[in-house]
């Protein structure tokens, strides 16, 4: 595995994503996904909302790193807020 050049921060990041997918899979098996219409312009189930939220999360963080030298934790906080809002009301 050395050729993959692992670091702790990236390992945690990837583990979180894999963990989230695993949790969603278990949730889907326990209770079938239900589509609904929130503030997003399309009907979504929880998997769709997670995918859209993740794309937005990455976009927010990348934009933050690209335009400002302020702490990346602020960008991370904003993106986590977006994740929570999308999953709840998206």
């Amino acid at each position: 595995m050395a050729w993959m050049a692992w670091t702790w921060p990236t390992a945690v990041f990837i583990a979180l994503i894999i963990g989230a997918i695993a949790v969603l899979t278990v949730m889907d098996l326990r209770s079938p996904p239900v589509t609904r219409k929130g503030f997003l312009p399309i009907e979504t189930d929880r998997g769709d909302r997670f995918y859209i939220a993740m794309l937005g999360l990455l976009a927010i963080n990348l934009t933050w790193w690209g335009v400002t030298d302020a702490s990346p934790l602020i960008g991370l906080g904003l993106s986590l807020l977006w994740l929570a809002v999308t999953m709840r009301w998206g």
Partner: peptide
């Protein structure tokens, strides 16, 4: 696996 490797490379 290649995508994970790219993620690892991007911070080093």
């Amino acid at each position: 696996v290649p995508l994970m490797t790219v993620i690892n490379y991007s911070v080093q």
